[in-house]
């Protein structure tokens, strides 16, 4: 892990109308690390993710990705930032009218001038890397199970060789076995593709096995950023409450 900063969030305030979700929030994500965002339901994890992805405009503060900010950028620069990240949405967000192969080819077809044969090869390679069954690439998203859907969406997220990968609850809705395999896959891809990963999750397994650092969101800001072991010893009431349940206790004994 380097000290080079991939994402820098300063003094961020977001909200909808009168209501604010974050106030004066600060967070740095280092290059090559896996940072997990946790916090109780409704604390604004997904809103923060959407703010970083420029899907909602912040009310105040700045978000820089590799030293570049979205505000006051000409369109070409915006595009060059967009090409550096891939997103795995919570429910996959695969295009329902396209097959898995076409979904994966889609960013390459739209954003590059590569020849069609190369596009299909690269897409197949990424689908194989995401460990999606290769005989199902002509299926439509509605024909896939939850685990396959996540893998197909992951293949599409990594197809442009992003520097940063955003995962929104990657293991939600998967059985423990599939979730654990997805965790391993994310770990492997992170190492071989040198990804910086920002993962929003509730899954304690993912927190322990995948995340290098964990940022805890509460009271409209980041309460703590630390490793899991350190976070468990933290004294802030919100954090203590979040981790004091029977599921978390099982890990506490192991730690």
């Amino acid at each position: 892990m380097s000290t080079e900063i991939a994402i820098q969030i300063d003094d961020l305030t977001t909200g909808y109308g009168e209501k604010t979700v974050h106030e004066h929030l600060n967070l740095s994500v280092y290059r090559g690390e896996v940072l997990a965002l946790v916090g109780g339901s409704g604390c604004g994890k997904t809103t923060l993710l959407r703010a970083i992805l420029n899907l909602i405009k912040p009310m105040a503060g700045s978000i820089q990705v590799f030293g570049e900010s979205f505000s006051h950028q000409p369109l070409e620069n915006e595009l060059s930032i967009l090409k550096r990240w891939g997103v795995l949405f919570q429910t996959g967000a695969l295009f329902s009218g396209l097959t898995v192969l076409d979904n994966t080819c889609f960013p390459l077809r739209e954003l590059t001038d590569l020849p069609e044969s190369l596009i299909q090869e690269i897409a197949m390679l990424k689908i194989s890397m995401a460990e999606f069954p290769l005989d199902s690439v002509y299926k439509y998203p509605s024909e896939l199970s939850g685990g396959m859907l996540k893998r197909a969406a992951l293949a599409r997220a990594i197809v442009m060789d992003p520097k940063i990968l955003f995962l929104d609850e990657p293991t939600a809705g998967l059985d423990p076995n599939a979730a654990s395999k997805l965790d391993d896959l994310i770990n492997r891809l992170q190492k071989s593709l040198h990804l910086t990963i920002l993962v929003v999750t509730h899954d304690l397994d993912t927190l322990w096995r995948v995340a290098d650092r964990v940022a805890f969101l509460g009271d409209k800001r980041v309460l703590a950023v630390d490793s899991m072991q350190a976070l468990l010893r933290h004294s802030a009431p919100l954090i203590v409450e979040y981790f004091s349940n029977s599921r978390a206790d099982a890990y506490r004994e192991l730690a």
Binding site: M124, L125, S128, M129, D135, Y138, K191, S192, L193, H194
Partner: peptide, 22 residues
């Protein structure tokens, strides 16, 4: 070294054959 992993990854996954679309 930083690119080596990429080649390994590709090597592990290059054995796909693209079937014709239905």
């Amino acid at each position: 070294e930083s690119f080596e992993a990429l080649f390994h990854l590709i090597h592990d996954h290059e054995k796909f054959s693209l079937e014709a679309a239905p």
